[in-house]
Nucleic acid binder design. Structure first.
Lengths: 334, 334
DNA sequence: TTGAAAGCGCTAACAG
DNA sequence: CTGTTAGCGCTTTCAA
C-alpha cells in the first residue's frame, strides 16, 4: 500500500492549523507566530512533506529552476562556467537545465513559447547573441534573461574584458619585439555561436601593439579551427615563413598547446626564439610553462547566477553590466 | 491591454461546446464526431490556443519532456548522439533537457526526488551506469529509464557491440602481422562516467588477434588521456621501442589522429610501416585516410529515444536490449 | 456522442 | 496573527 505523498492539507491537519498557514510558513511569510511556525515545521518534518513543484508552477509561482542555453563546443570553459553557475544556484535551492544550441535546427526547437527551456523562472544565455537566438531579439516568453560571455545593451550581462586581455598579451610580447603573429579562432557563422570574443582579443592586441611601436601585418593573422592541431598547423606554416625569432599570440590555450608542441618539434625554445602567449588560464598551462591570460571563469558563472537571482526578485531593474578583468600569468613561454 | 492567453474554456465557448469536449479533441479521443472535432479545431486555430503544460503536469498528465543525463566530455560523440535523440523526440512533440554529470557534487544535486531532471516523463542515461548514478541503482522517482551507450539488465538499453568493433580492428591488422600495440583511453573513476567501452574494444581485439595467431603483449597496451596529444605521446614512445613495422589500434579516432600525426612526423608511412585503425567513424577520418570502426551514433540516439517513447506508453514491458553493430571503414591507413 | 461536475496542490485576497 | 474561500487550466469520471 503505497501511501500517497503528503500534501499541504495533511501537514495542516497534523499541525492543527489551516493549509494557508502552512503555505505561509513554507514561503517565509513574516506574520506567523514563532509558536505556529514551530508546530508546522515539526509536522512538515515528521511527514517528510515537500511541496509539489508541479502545483507551484501551475499556480503561477516559481519553479525554482532556470534554463541555460549554450553552444556546446566541448571545452573546459563551459565545464568551469557551469561549476560557477551551479554553485550559486545550489545555495538558493535552484536547479538548472541545459539546452545546447549547436545547430540551426536546434534553434527552431526553441522558438515556441511552450518549449521546455521556457518552463523555468529565468534564462541564462552563455556565449550566445540574443539577436541571433531569438526572433525579435527576445525570448518568446517574457522571462528574466541574463547573458554571460556575451553582451547586449538590453539585458544584464557578465563578460570578460577580452580586449584588455589582448592588450596584456601585446605588452608581454612587446618586451622583445620580433616578427609577430596572431592565431585567431575561426567562429562558424552557421551556428548561433558567434560571440566575437576572439576578435575582441585580436583588436585589443593590435591596439596595444601599435602603442608599443610593434606592428601586426594583416597576413600575420592566421585563422584556424578550434583545436590543438589547428595551432600546430598554423605554427608549422609560420615557422616556414619567418626568418628570425617569432612572437605568437594564440587566442586560446587549446590552440596555444599546438603551437608549443609544434615549436618544440621544430627545435625552437619557447621563451627565447619562440615566444608564446595563450588565453584562458587552463590548468595544464602551469605544467607546460605557458604564459597565458587568465579568465575568472567560475567567477563569471557565479556573477551570472547571482545577477539572474537578483532579476528574478525584481524584474524592473535597469540592465546591469559587469566587465571582469583578465589577469596575466607569467610563465617561461614569454 | 495584454489579453490573457486563451484557455480551454475560451476554445469551448468559441466552438459552442463544453471544455471537456475540447480536451477530448486535444487528446485524440475516438468518440468525437467529425463535425464537432472540426469546429473545435477551427476554434483552436483561430485563437492560437496551446494547452498549458504547467496545468497538464499538475493534473498528473504528461509534461512532454524527457531528461537526458550525460557526462560532458565534450566530444563529437555526444553532439551526434543528441542529434539522433532529438530528431525522434521532435517528431513526437517531445523536448529534452540536459543534465551534465561531470562531477561527484553534480550527483548530489540529483539525489532529491524533486530535482529538476525528474520533472519529466522519462529519463535517458548516456554512457552512465545507473548503479553509480543513483542510490539503490534506480532514480529517486519511478520514472521510465532508458540507457544508451551503457548497459544494465534491469533497464532498456541501446549500445554498440564494442567487442565486435575490436574484433574488426584485429582482423584488419592481422592481415599483415607486425608488432602490435593498442592505445587505450584512460577512464577516470572519480566521475560517474565509466562505461567501460574502451575496455570492451580491447577485449574484442585481443580475442580476435589470438584467433589469427597474432599476439598482444601486456606492455603493448598503452593507456593515455582522451586527446590527440595523448595518442601522439604514446606513439612517440611506441616508435622508440619498436624495431620493425608497427600495427596500432587506437580505441578512438581522436587519439588515432595523434598517432597519425606523430607517425608522419617520425617519417612513417601510414598503411605500410605504420598501420593504424581508429574507432568512431568521425568525419575528418575520411580526409585523413584513417581506417576506422564506425559507430552508428545517430542511430543509437534515435533508437534510444524510440525506446523511451515506447516505454512511456507502456511501463510494464520487460526490458529490451539493443546491440548495434559497428562497421569497418577501410581506408589507406590499414 | 456530448455535457456537468469534481478535483489535482497550492497560494493570495479577504475577513475576522 | 490565522482562518475562509476561491481559483489557476486541464482531464476524468459519471450521467444523459
Amino acid at each position: 500500500m503505497a501511501t500517497r505523498r503528503p500534501r499541504i492539507q495533511d501537514v495542516a491537519r497534523k499541525a492543527g492549523v489551516v493549509p494557508s498557514t502552512v503555505s505561509r510558513v513554507l514561503n517565509d511569510y513574516p506574520d506567523v507566530s514563532a509558536e505556529t511556525r514551530a508546530k508546522v515545521e515539526r509536522a512538515i518534518e515528521s511527514l517528510g512533506f515537500r511541496p509539489s513543484q508541479a502545483a507551484r508552477a501551475f499556480r503561477g509561482g516559481r519553479t525554482h529552476s532556470v534554463s541555460i542555453m549554450l553552444p556546446m563546443p566541448g571545452t573546459e570553459f563551459y565545464a568551469r562556467l557551469l561549476t560557477g553557475i551551479e554553485s550559486v544556484l545550489d545555495e538558493h535551492a535552484y536547479s538548472a537545465g541545459l539546452f545546447p544550441l549547436l545547430t540551426l535546427p536546434g534553434l527552431e526547437r526553441y522558438r515556441d513559447a511552450d518549449a521546455l527551456p521556457y518552463r523555468a523562472d529565468g534564462l541564462l544565455l552563455a556565449s550566445l547573441d540574443p539577436e541571433r537566438v531569438f526572433q525579435g531579439g527576445r525570448p518568446p516568453v517574457a522571462l528574466p534573461l541574463v547573458l554571460v560571455d556575451s553582451r547586449h545593451p538590453a539585458f544584464d550581462w557578465i563578460a570578460l574584458d577580452n580586449a584588455a586581455g589582448g592588450r596584456l598579451a601585446a605588452q608581454v610580447l612587446n618586451e622583445r619585439p620580433a616578427e609577430t603573429f596572431v592565431i585567431l579562432i575561426r567562429e562558424r557563422f552557421d551556428t548561433p555561436f558567434a560571440s566575437g570574443v576572439f576578435n575582441e582579443r585580436l583588436q585589443g592586441f593590435k591596439a596595444a601593439l601599435a602603442e608599443g611601436h610593434g606592428r601586426l601585418d594583416d597576413d600575420h593573422v592566421v585563422t584556424v579551427e578550434f583545436s590543438a592541431s589547428g595551432g600546430g598547423l598554423a605554427t608549422r606554416h609560420i615557422l616556414e615563413v619567418a626568418r628570425g625569432p617569432v612572437n605568437i599570440f594564440a587566442t586560446c590555450d587549446l590552440v596555444a598547446r599546438g603551437v608549443l608542441e609544434e615549436g618544440l618539434r621544430g627545435g625552437k625554445t619557447p621563451g627565447s626564439d619562440l615566444r608564446v602567449v595563450g588565453f584562458d588560464g587552463e590548468e595544464w598551462t602551469e605544467g607546460a610553462g605557458l604564459t597565458t591570460i587568465e579568465q575568472p571563469i567560475e567567477e563569471m558563472g557565479r556573477a551570472a547566477a547571482r545577477a539572474l537571482l537578483v532579476r528574478l526578485a525584481d524584474e524592473t531593474l535597469p540592465p546591469r553590466h559587469t566587465l571582469l578583468e583578465p589577469r596575466l600569468i607569467r610563465r617561461s613561454s614569454a
